[in-house]
Design a binder for these strands. Structure first.
Length: 133
RNA sequence: UUGGAAGGGCGGAGAAUCGCUCCCGGCGCAAGCGGGGGGAGGAAAGUCCGAACACCGCAGGGCGUGAUGCCGCGUAACUCCGGUUCGGCCGGAGAUACACGCGGGAGGAAAGUUGAAAGACGUUCCGACGGAAAGUGCCACAGAAAAUAAGACCGCCGCCGUCUGUUUGAGGCGGUAAGGGUGAAAAGGUGGUGUAAGAGACCACCGCGCGAAGCGCAAGCAACGCGGCACGGAAAACCCCAUCGGGUGCAAGGCCAAAUAGGAAACCGAGGAGUUGUCCGCUCCGGGUUUCGUGAAAGCGAAACAGGUUUCGGGUAUCGGUCGCUCAGACAAAUGAUUCUCUCCGUUCGCAAGAACGCAGACAGAAUUCGGCUUACAGCCCUUCCAAAACC
RNA sequence: UGUCCGAUGGUGUAAUGGUAACACAGAGCCCUUUGAAGGCUUUAUUCAUGGUUCGAAUCCAUGUCGGACAA
């Protein structure tokens, strides 16, 4: 498997599942507005990230924005699923719990999972949100 | 076999790991955990039509406005009835299509055949197709004239009459729509008789109009008879006639258990509000002040006469019967990610077997439901027809 | 998801069914010592395809693209 497994190399005491349930989603319009206006922002490659750090022990949450500029419903669904998948795979690699919003850009059309994952990890590393390995 | 046209169909399969969403059991105070099952399309799209369904203090009338307009047949969700093993089950019936599909008939176009021509005939394609003898308006430019059977520019003909040797010619008065020219269109066509020249003035054929035996369920076709010809085009101009339509669309002037509450009381006051184009009519009781009180989310609407599947039968194929199964459903919105195997297709290499490469590679993602139309689409399959080549 | 609008040169707008007009901009030429201003010329398959009509930017149908509103 070319994509590094989150558990690989870092033995965790308890086996943590890679679930991504409904409680992990940011659903309120107010949360979106707060993160977009007050959160930190970084654009790289095919995505834009807005985030706010949360206190330790909190549940990290994810919101995804795919505008009509990306394309039709097929392209937007694909972009949202890829971004959610990258967050799900790496949700335990975060150094600190955050509320994060990932905005897809036009260049995400046609990208594979590996390319999107690379952009996501680079963004997190530059933002200092990734655990040191 | 190859190519083309028309019509119809399909739109990869299997598996592993990690996930998402819905339903049903189990455990748990709860968060949740674990088990079983379901989970995008032929167009889900565009929103171009129609319908269901729901609501709007009722839908009744007038005016306005919109849609539709040849004939026949067929068809959905839906509604109703009966039975019931109560299952969203079985059987039957009805309706709406001025959505649409199929077939036919007027009409039009193209090339062809025939004919001296007008026209006729069959083929192919199109075919939004009531009324232009109810009314109003329009038909640019060109042309003499563009719609009261009008119109005399060039012509043709007759008469008068001037000049002159005579005719021609100039001029005047009349007749004439055969010819020229303009135009999309010039007021029946062709041929003849006739005439000063002409003219349906008369005749033959054709066309046209009216009637009509007969044929056809019907639209309609039409032998035959009558009429000398009347009715230019356009209603996808206004309009007239007939039929239909109340409005709003699940993001609804929709519903919503329990708790809270929607409200209750008093006074003032004589009209107010609604009916969503407007008026009449109709319906409701409202409005202001004071006092107590006066949140939002979630949920319902909303998922099944469909569909897929096992097996049987015939068929080239689409298909038909039968058995058992219940089978997408959210609301910042599930149906995904990665990997392996097989198969289809394409390219390259190879005599071939086969190998390598190409992300199973096109258009595209359900949002109340149903039917239709239109648009997009890699590749493949089936039927029919046409053309070419080879073989018998 | 539903409802509703619009499309004319590069831009902004006009146009009874009858030669697509105006302004600005662009290019070229004239004028001028040069420039500005001015003058002349040029720049359009009226979103596409069909249909009605003698004739379509206009009327009708379908599609394409763009936009607005409703939580």
């Amino acid at each position: 498997m070319p994509a590094p497994t989150p558990d690989a190399g870092s033995p965790t005491p308890a086996r943590r599942t890679l679930r991504l349930g409904r409680s992990v989603r940011i659903e309120r319009s107010g949360d979106f507005a707060r993160l977009r206006q007050q959160g930190q922002r970084m654009a790289l490659g095919c995505l834009i990230a807005n985030w706010q750090r949360l206190p330790d022990g909190a549940q990290p949450r994810l919101g995804v924005v795919t505008s009509k500029k990306i394309g039709g419903a097929v392209q937007r669904n694909r972009a949202r699923r890829l971004l959610r998948e990258t967050f799900r795979r790496h949700q335990y690699d975060l150094a600190q719990p955050v509320d994060i919003i990932l905005v897809a850009r036009n260049s995400i059309a046609g990208r594979t999972y590996a390319e999107v994952e690379k952009d996501y990890l680079t963004t997190l590393r530059r933002a200092g949100l990734l655990k040191p390995t």
